[in-house]
């Protein structure tokens, strides 16, 4: 990975309209890199999933307007893209269980429980650090 070519950071309140904003940020960050449509679709999807989880689960039962979500995109010289999404929310009590396909703590919200499995499948590597003080998701993807 080594040398950083480009990097952006954003901080925004946990409002659902910012899910689309986060996807546009990622699209803009990649616009000059000749990324294939399939890879771009994957990246938009995983950014959307991680940001949505921060908003829906991290800050559940809180007023999102006062709750920060952090998105960081970093591109390395070997075309590795690192996506980091962080919240200061409630954390994930059982990570292994959360990773199971179709597991969700929000049935009435019609959540599918497929967000984390999709993030895992669409990237080369995913690492989650979580505690009752918040959650950090780091995903790596080598751009074609």
């Amino acid at each position: 990975m080594k040398e950083i070519i480009n990097s952006i950071r954003a901080r925004f309140p946990a409002l659902s309209e910012n899910e689309g904003v986060a996807r546009i940020l990622a699209t803009g960050f990649l616009m000059h890199l000749g990324v294939t449509p399939a890879a771009l679709a994957d990246i938009k999807t995983v950014v959307s999933e991680a940001v949505t989880n921060a908003i829906v689960h991290g800050y559940r039962d809180r007023n999102g307007a006062g709750c920060p979500v952090f998105l960081e995109l970093t591109l390395y010289a070997d075309r590795t893209l690192v996506i980091t999404v962080r919240d200061r929310g409630r954390g994930i009590p059982d990570l292994e269980q959360a990773m199971q396909p179709f597991f969700t703590t929000d049935r009435e919200g019609e959540r599918s429980g497929m967000g984390l499995p999709i993030m895992d499948a669409f990237t080369d590597q995913m690492k989650i650090t979580t505690s009752p003080k918040g959650t950090k998701v780091v995903m790596k993807k080598r751009l074609p």
Binding site: R23, K44, T45, S112, M114, I118
Partner: peptide, 13 residues
């Protein structure tokens, strides 16, 4: 133009 796992929830519902 775009759908993520929230759309999956919508379809399954």
């Amino acid at each position: 133009e775009f759908m993520d796992s929230s759309g999956l929830g919508l379809i399954l519902g």
